[in-house]
């Protein structure tokens, strides 16, 4: 019994753990090898489906662009539809009621919202999940200024989910503003942004700060 806590005791325990973790890691590596391609394929087709729901039918070409975008903009694509430039599409991550919402927001070359496609979300079924309904999403079409709650019809019982989509659209609009050639679009939006500022005092801090940044960029 004296030897119980000797070196061999710890060696034995350590080695057992090592063997078990190595076994599990090996199994995971094997499963990963089998499933990785399929998972990537699924994610890509999901993203393409979302882009399609924004731009409709037609030959769509996308090209990834880089730039200084807000943190929650995951991917920025410049979109060509049937060979003609059709603005930009931003992949935005926004936090809803049930976790992350990943969506594609299409912005026309003139800075107005083309449409929204939800890629991934886990909002409550029957409540928050209704933000992916066409009736809710279509109201964003044509908007070009940073939105506040008073600009949209929020879904009853799903304020958090509705606002999450709104914040996502705002992030996409911000991202668009930071791409080249968007000066005219933001200048036109200037007056409208200020008036919404004054009308809603309930706007949360994050929206206000985005408002401020839009105004800042206008003055340049």
């Amino acid at each position: 019994m004296q030897n119980k806590f000797g070196a061999s005791y710890f060696l034995k325990i350590g080695l057992t753990l090592l063997v078990i973790t190595a076994l599990v890691a090996g199994m995971l590596a094997a499963v990963n090898m089998i499933t990785k391609d399929k998972i990537d394929e699924n994610n890509l087709s999901e993203q393409n489906a979302a882009i399609k729901s924004v731009y409709g039918e037609g030959d769509i070409e996308t090209e990834e662009i880089s730039g200084d975008f807000p943190e929650n903009v995951g991917k920025a694509l410049s979109v060509k539809q049937n060979g003609e430039s059709a603005g930009y599409c931003f992949e935005v991550n926004t936090s809803g009621y049930g976790g992350n919402i990943k969506m594609m927001v299409g912005i026309n070359s003139d800075g107005s919202v083309r449409g929204i496609g939800i890629v991934e979300m886990s909002e409550t079924a029957g409540l928050g999940s209704r933000v992916s309904d066409e009736t809710y999403l279509s109201q964003y079409g044509g908007k070009s200024t940073t939105l506040t709650v008073s600009d949209i019809d929020v879904i009853t019982g799903s304020t958090v989910s509705s606002k999450a989509i709104m914040n996502g659209v705002n992030a996409a609009l911000d991202a668009f503003a930071s791409t080249e050639g968007s000066d005219t679009a933001t200048e036109g939006a200037d007056g409208a942004t200020e008036s919404t500022d004054a009308s809603t005092e309930s706007t949360d801090a994050s929206t206000e700060s985005t408002d401020a940044s839009t105004e800042g960029s206008d003055e340049e």
Binding site: V24, V31, T35
Partner: peptide
């Protein structure tokens, strides 16, 4: 370790 290994495997399989 064993349980989380299997859960991760199931997660990947469902995603695929």
């Amino acid at each position: 370790v064993i349980i989380s290994g299997f859960v991760t495997a199931v997660d990947m399989l469902i995603k695929a």
